[in-house]
Design a protein around this nucleic acid. Structure first.
Lengths: 210, 210, 210, 210
DNA sequence: GATGAATGAGCATTCATTCAT
DNA sequence: TATGAATGAATGCTCATTCAT
């Protein structure tokens, strides 16, 4: 057995878990479901991760890795205008979150429930870090009089909330825009530009003084 | 036993279910949990609702009742400007959704999962109805040149998404604004005006031409 | 369903558990074994007792009830000689322990292992109580010069240890005395008088001065 | 790798198994526990012993080796009186069993359960052999009129049972004599002379005519 | 209406063992 | 020898639901 195949089974389990957790929720997914979908023996979940919950933890850690690099670049960057930075952030996050739609569905679904502190704390820390970085960009724009004095937290809520709407209400948008519910690629292809255009337009009108 | 007591038990079950579903999710809540919290015999859930899933259905139907009356009023209303109507919609929805935070947490959490068609379809139909009505308000404003030609669906996504952020990320906002996580009343009192002010400002800048 | 039948299932579970724990040990017995032997649904163990361990606890509590009444009578009694009291204690304990052979096999087997404190503490407290009472009888005999100054604790160890030998080494004695291993009644019938005669003779020789 | 290290791992497994079986029982101990405690790969148990049960068998065989040499010496010996022989047997067995307390705890615990015939038969044969040899010593003393006509089997039951009490009820004696439960050495140091004195006194009073 | 008992299917996890390397 | 991976069966327990009363 090659080393590629070895890690395969672990990876297969994580991938199967991601799909199932997104579709059916954490509690709605049994370890049997995961093992079957991954075509891996049930006991390997215990072997590799210890428990179903620790599998979720590993899944989150792995998918969140390389999270806020662009944000840190933007904060340090001195050449771009504040608005150009925000534009880049919008571009980046729409792509990133929509490409990882399944994963972010899990995060959105499980974040509010009574999960173990480990999971809640992990997600909170990542969200807080990103929140703080975006806030710096907005504050900088306000200081430079490039932006109006708006409510930074609520403005971020609008950015993230708009993207999450597209993530969470796929059903609605597929119905509204007559997109085949099973065709994930088409959904992403149609929603990404629409979402980016809208956010750019709305956030610009909201932030910038003219 | 009086008829008041009769409906009491049914109502207690629905209320207990609402809290538990919001906290732990549908699958994470057992009928035993619900019966215990409601201080009602376990078998009564079967008796009153038939099954755990039908209890969720009844809960959704009951809480969604009297939903879109204001929207219909606004559509028919000819005295108010389009923006005044949107303002009223914002005011109304922020109050309504934040007051029913627990219920909307359930909706947001369970809507994406593989629930029975009955539940998904019920939620979808209510959401679609409200979407359509708000769209009429926006289209009317565009027609009257009161609003710019923006993307109506994405604009609604932003309105709803912003409110949902406040619903779903209570953890984050409690941390950011130093609000006691257990003090629901304080959370609502602080977030409602902030949310309304922000939405009015942002949506106005986005929609209206000057 | 009559009330007799109701408690029957609970009782059946306890009886089945007693036999199986004695034969195969606590860990060697599965809840499925118990349910099957009792001809009762598996889930009833959870329903009645909460867990396998709590079933053992209930079993011990129930079988130990009405434990040390005779000993307390003997301590209070002023008419009998100290030796007559010890004789009665031997008579009583041989009958009691041999009649509850299965139960005492469990106690002897499980007492030394890493069980929950609840179980260990329960057994210890009962054993200590009886130890203390018997010690009083021996001390009284010594004070009255009826008995020699022997080691009371070790003397009790010999009394209990001898009886436990007959309990625990049934295999050996069946082989030595050619008793059918399956014939519990014959074993008890042959061992009880033998055990009583021996203990009376030995303990008398040990205790009494002439 | 040296041959010393080779047998080391095997020996480590047996030693770890002895401790764990004594503490938690055979069924309460998993092969993972043993492998971990011995710091040896799990699969080595299969490799060295074939199975968990065969490991127990090897453990018993190894610890029982060199068992009844002293007894055979005593039977052949013509110089010592019968009582002097019994005294030596008491001395020998108290030391031997108390020094191997953990092992004898296992034997006492597992002997009554439904183990494989191989194990039961092995233990029975060793016990029977020793029983027979001691019986010869007692019969010899009776024949020589040195001893009374007592019940030899029950007398042996008392000897072994008294020692087993000290083995099995360590909890009780630690509580009675205020010995630290974790201090095995202190327990043995205090119990051995006490046990020997008592047995000598009691068995002498029981056996010898004066 | 209301309840305690009962059921069978399902749960996550751990078991002793075996395998390829 | 030695190991990490893998397996299928079994573990204790909880699930939503039903039933007789």
């Amino acid at each position: 057995m090659t080393s590629a195949e070895k890690t395969d089974k672990r990876e297969q389990l994580i991938n199967a878990a991601e799909e199932l957790f997104a579709e059916k929720g954490f509690d709605g997914t049994s370890v049997r479901d995961i093992a079957q979908k991954a075509d891996v023996n049930l006991a390997m979940i215990s072997y590799y991760f210890g428990s179903k919950e620790k599998l979720l933890l590993v899944l989150i850690e792995q998918r969140f890795a390389s999270s806020s690099e662009l944000l840190e670049d933007m904060v340090k960057n001195t050449k771009l205008s504040s608005w150009e930075k925000i534009e880049k952030v919008i571009e980046y996050y729409v792509d990133k979150i929509l490409n990882g739609r399944k994963f972010h569905t899990i995060i959105n679904q499980e974040y509010n429930t009574d999960r173990s502190h480990e999971i809640i704390d992990l997600i909170t820390s990542i969200k807080m870090k990103n929140f703080t970085l975006i806030r710096q960009l907005i504050d900088e724009g306000i200081k430079k009089k490039e932006f109006r004095k708006i409510d930074p937290e609520m403005t971020m809520a609008s950015m993230m909330g708009t993207i999450n709407s597209v993530i969470n209400s796929k059903n609605i948008y597929c119905a509204l825009f007559k997109i085949d519910r099973e065709n994930e690629a088409e959904y992403l292809a149609k929603m990404k530009p629409r979402l980016k255009d809208h956010l750019r337009l709305m956030i610009r009108a909201h932030l910038t003084t003219e």
